[in-house]
Design a protein around this nucleic acid. Structure first.
Lengths: 301, 301
DNA sequence: TCCAATCCATACAAATATGCATACCTGAAG
DNA sequence: CTTCAGGTATGCATATTTGTATGGATTGGA
């Protein structure tokens, strides 16, 4: 501790540094403004004020967006560190609040978000009306460290040590097809008939092809005439008898238009579901409440 | 890089975190306000707003000052990291400015500040009227990492790798006393007579006593009846014939009221002077200008 | 016990920052 | 060449923040 501590270097406007950080990361003032819930002129003036304060430009103004100057690139490293610390501050702070009201955001795959979460959230809201839930439905893995969500439900156990994960349950997956499509193929279809069928995955040489071929199929890219990044779209296509796909029992068995394509006594695949949250959120009562509730709901399956 | 980056945890008001940091470090809103050049109500409201935002108290209000809550202590770690990053940002930023106008702050010991810097600064200002100089006269070592000064002149080489140091010159130190006092002791005084004289240092069992005893003196605490933390005060006492002290030739030889107390042909002590600045400031043109000027001035001695 | 010093909270005026509407610029596509 | 989409800069009314002045509270010492 200093006798007379001097704060010359940190008495600049930290919000201007924040504006610089987000603008640099987002690539334009307008995009930064959108993602922060502010307006473009505000951010523009904050960045301009910072540039004026430090005496040189951080961006070169171009018709389309901004471009970092070499100096801006150097300084960006430092505001990134500020941002990381701010992030940790925010995470830690919300873990120490003892109110059980407020937002909790959950991210899960499209299928989980669409078919499994809604009834659970409904039950939770009846128990805890003070907790508001935000569902990020996405097949991308969101970054809990950046607090893009408070809770994630994933099919892989995260490796980062700052995240805590709990295994929810195992779900069994099978091949499903519309009844109409099965009758078209031959009922029940033989492996030879299935090898001529259409399948759906997110990519052409996808994981489903590899999996099925390891189970005795001999599929090629020709068997995947339609792909979609959205599992919901995939499922709609399956329901309409356009193709076959793999999905979990909880979804496939509850859809009267489709039925299992049985190729063996065993499930095609078994997936472990994990619920994940940030270490710092462990002590946040409302996130804890949602976390524990989700664990108990899935355990009931 | 994320597809859709989310800034939920970063969009809080960073200036409130800054207010929290400085208030916690300084111990009170009033002290924090003083050291930041703001007012106490402003900081009080910023801290209160932050507490309201995160939902719990950071400080317990007490009659005299504030006291961190346990939660506040935890969160302080994170805002400290923000502050460190802000500090680095600021240092790096001023290193990249290419204007040669503005403030440069120099810290040096009281004696150097008083007797050696003024003529040098005068010469510098004539060459570079755009550069304004701020002299921190203190015997404490200021923290260049926190930018309590841009340039320091010290008698020890700093060890931190992020600082750059250059040896200015060696200065020779001798014992000096007022002529009147020497006549009182006996002229020239013998070692036995000097052993009964009064000396001045900053502490009672100080370094000067150790040094002189290693050179044949036999002094005790009784020989240091007056101490002062200020070398200026010490020097005034010496000039008025109250005691003997050690100082450098440049000061002692230029003062007609005093003369050297010669105890050997060699100087009593030889001190290396170093000029130090922060790595990041190496490329700041105006600080560079002052740095180089000081080097050349001292080399002329 | 009283006083002085120090600090925090609040009312109100002034200064500052923000948002909205809009003009302007640039690059890509028809 | 024109249009259009996406972005940046600016004027102006409004909101918010800040500083000043002041009152209230607590501590430490005469």
């Amino acid at each position: 501790m200093h006798i007379c501590m001097d704060w010359k270097s940190i008495t600049f406007d930290w919000n201007r540094a924040r504006a610089f950080l987000v603008t640099a990361e987002e690539g334009s003032l307008a995009a930064a403004a959108r993602s922060m819930g502010m307006t473009q002129p505000t951010l523009g003036r904050q960045v301009a004020a910072l540039e004026s304060e430090i005496g040189f430009d951080l961006f070169t103004r171009r018709g389309r967006g901004l471009e970092l100057t070499p100096n801006g690139i150097k300084l960006l490293e430092h505001v990134r560190l500020m941002g990381d610390a701010a992030n940790q501050f925010s995470l830690s702070a919300s873990g120490k609040s003892d109110v059980i009201e407020g937002d909790v955001s959950i991210t899960a795959s499209e299928l989980l978000s669409t078919f499994m979460l809604p009834p659970m959230i409904k039950a939770l809201r009846e128990l805890e009306p003070g907790i508001e839930i935000e569902i990020y439905s996405t097949n991308e893995q969101r970054d809990l460290n950046r607090r893009e969500a408070d809770i994630a439900i994933r099919s892989v156990r995260p490796t980062q040590p700052e995240l805590i994960a709990k295994r929810l349950c195992s779900v069994r997956g099978h091949l499903y097809a519309a009844k109409s499509y099965l009758q078209q193929l031959g009922y029940p279809p033989s492996i030879a008939e299935l090898n001529k069928a259409n399948f759906i995955d997110t990519e052409k040489p996808g994981r489903l092809m590899t999996l099925l071929n390891s189970q005795g199929f001999s599929l090629t890219r020709q068997n995947f005439p339609v792909i979609s990044n959205s599992h919901i779209v995939q499922w709609e296509l399956v329901k309409q008898g356009m193709a076959i796909t793999a999905t979990v029992e909880e979804i496939g068995d509850n859809e009267p238009l489709v039925e299992r394509v049985v190729i063996s006594n065993l499930p095609l695949i078994t997936i472990d579901l994990w619920i994940v949250t940030h270490n710092e959120l462990r002590t946040n009562p409302r996130i804890r409440r949602v976390f524990d509730f989700m664990v108990s709901e899935f355990a009931g399956d």
